[in-house]
Structure formats: C-alpha cells, structure tokens
Amino acid sequence: MHLTKSCHEKDHIKKRKTVKLATLEHYRRTENHEISDASEGMLQLELNVTAPTIVEHKWLNTIMQGAIHYGSPDATIRFPGVTNMEGENIVIRRHSERHCLLEKAKVSVQRESLNSLIFCMSESLKEGDCREIFKGYDSEWSIPKENAEDMSRILSQALMSRILDDSLQPIIQIPSDKSLKIIYSHMSVLYTDREILINHNNTGDFNKILDHLEFTSFLKPRSYSHEREYRFNFLCVGSGGVIPYINDSVILSVPEDFISLIM
C-alpha cells in the first residue's frame, strides 16, 4: 500500500521541496469546491432512546460530558476541542458495576475538533490509480504507507523549524516561557455520516460513536470516500494548552530525509 499526493507537475515536491499544510478551518472556507467541506472537523449526534437499553458507564458518561456520572472517576473520556450537550427526558436505572439501564433519553451532542493543521494524501495500490480522484492535476508522488510515521515525524520537525524562524511571518504566538511542542497523529480517514441518529433499533452503533467523538478531525462524509484519504494532523501545544494558528495554511520546506522517502 502507498500514500499518494496528487499535484501539478510544476509543483512536484522533488522540484519545489515544499509541502503545504492547511487548517480544518481552511477547508471549511475554501472556494475550491473539489476539496471544500463546510463541516470539516465537526460532528452532530442525536440520541433518542425509546426502549430500555443497556449501555456501558464509559459510553454514557462520555456522551453526557459530566452532566451525569456513574462508576469510577476515570470512566469518562474527555476530548480536546468543543463538545456541547443538551439532554431531556433522561431516565437511568443502575444495572451493574460497569453498565446502566438507559430507560429513555433524548440527547443532542455537537462536537468540534481543535483547529489543527492537516496534510492529506490518498491510499493507493499502484502508480497512477489516484489520477482520477482530483481533476486538473497532472502529476503525483508517493511514499510507502509503512513510512507514514517517519513522514509525520519529519513534517513535525519541519513545522517546528518554520515556527522558530523569526525571519518569516509568524504562524503562531510563541509562548513567553518558550514552552512549545508539536503533537502529531496520522490515520486513514473514517467515512461516515456526520449527523448520526441512534435509537433502540440501532444500538449496535453505540460504541462506534466513541471513536467518532475521539477522531472527529479524521471524519469525512461517505460522499468523499472515493478520495481514500490518509490524514496527517498537527497541533502546537505550550504550557498553557493548545496554541491556535494565526494563519490557515503554511508552506514547509522539507529536508532531504523526507525526499528520500518518496518512491
């Protein structure tokens, strides 16, 4: 399996030796309809339980985000970003040490990921099988998928070098105590509905929702599944927490050890 980046021949990485990272917000606002996604990094969940349903404490605590808590103190997952919850007609009966009997409930959850920088590629099996995904590009480059971790590390280092280069326009406000690190993650995009209705007829989806809440920055609607996207995600963090990006995109110069990954 390969990871492939579609591009214009004139912008091929071996010529430019640069890559462009852009924020989730950038993709919400871009006028390029082929890549735009107004709900990038967002999720809405509607939970409507109309018949008694057994759920894990962890699942219920996480959905309720502190409004209700059962079990041990660590039986709740907290996600970075913004999570809002509104609930009504919630009736719960204690069932066991790990589970509750949720008799009925109506809950709405809105989730928005932190505005990270991302870099997107496509999973491919052979040279050329991504050329029909994005119209208008006449070239591409690829790396073996098993080198994704190396690529993430190198891009993280390149981003840090760019941030610390005071000869260029700043992309973050560097903390006064100079505390700064970059947290990166990478994985295949999860293609699913962003608006998810759960009721007593599809309770099998309950545990899957935790993954959707955790990896909201890696969610895309099924209509984008032809892109076969593999995403690299970068957050800047200081002693005071996540540091927002000033600009919605950045061009990074990549070192030779990055170029050496290219097939």
Rank of each mutant, 00 (worst) to 15 (best):
E97F: 07
I77N: 13
F215A: 04
S223G: 11
G128H: 04
K135G: 11
L114Y: 10
A148P: 04
G128I: 03
K178E: 12
E256N: 10
D166C: 12
I63F: 10
S179M: 07
K20W: 07
I183M: 12
R29W: 06
T83C: 14
E25T: 13
L101W: 05
D150W: 04
I174F: 00
P52S: 00
E123P: 12
F218L: 07
S124A: 11
I251R: 12
S239I: 08
I182E: 02
N207F: 08
L47P: 02
V91P: 01
H33N: 13
L47G: 01
F206K: 04
N247S: 15
G81Y: 08
E103V: 11
I133E: 05
K5A: 07
N61M: 00
N84H: 13
D129I: 07
N89Q: 10
S152M: 06
V55C: 05
L180Y: 01
S253N: 14
I196S: 00
A158S: 09
V109I: 09
N207R: 12
L60Q: 01
M42H: 08
F232L: 09
N61V: 04
L43S: 04
S96E: 05
R78A: 14
K208N: 11
N201V: 02
N61G: 04
D193N: 15
C236S: 10
S176E: 15
L261P: 07
M42Q: 11
I13N: 00
L213G: 06
I198A: 00
T4W: 01
R162W: 06
Q157V: 13
E149C: 13
S176R: 15
L235N: 10
G71Q: 05
K220M: 06
G41T: 04
T4D: 02
N48K: 06
L45A: 05
D165Y: 07
E214F: 08
H99D: 11
M121P: 02
C236G: 06
E229W: 02
L101Q: 09
S167A: 11
L21W: 05
S122H: 07
R194G: 04
L261C: 04
R28L: 00
T4Y: 02
E146H: 14
K135A: 13
Q173K: 15
H57R: 01
Y137G: 04
I246R: 09
R131L: 12
L210C: 03
I68Y: 08
S249D: 15
I243F: 01
E88F: 10
S139C: 09
P255Q: 06
S249W: 12
E132N: 14
S185I: 07
S116A: 15
L219M: 02
I68W: 08
E112W: 06
D205Y: 14
S223P: 12
K10G: 07
L47I: 15
Q169G: 11
S6A: 10
C7R: 07
F119Q: 01
S152N: 10
G136M: 02
F79Q: 08
S124T: 09
I163A: 08
K5M: 02
L155E: 02
I63Y: 04
I251Y: 14
D11M: 10
A75Y: 12
H186G: 08
L43E: 01
K14N: 11
I154A: 03
V19W: 05
E112M: 06
Y184C: 15
S161T: 10
M160S: 06
S116Q: 12
R98N: 12
A148K: 14
S139A: 14
L261W: 00
I183T: 10
A105D: 03
I63N: 00
L117K: 03
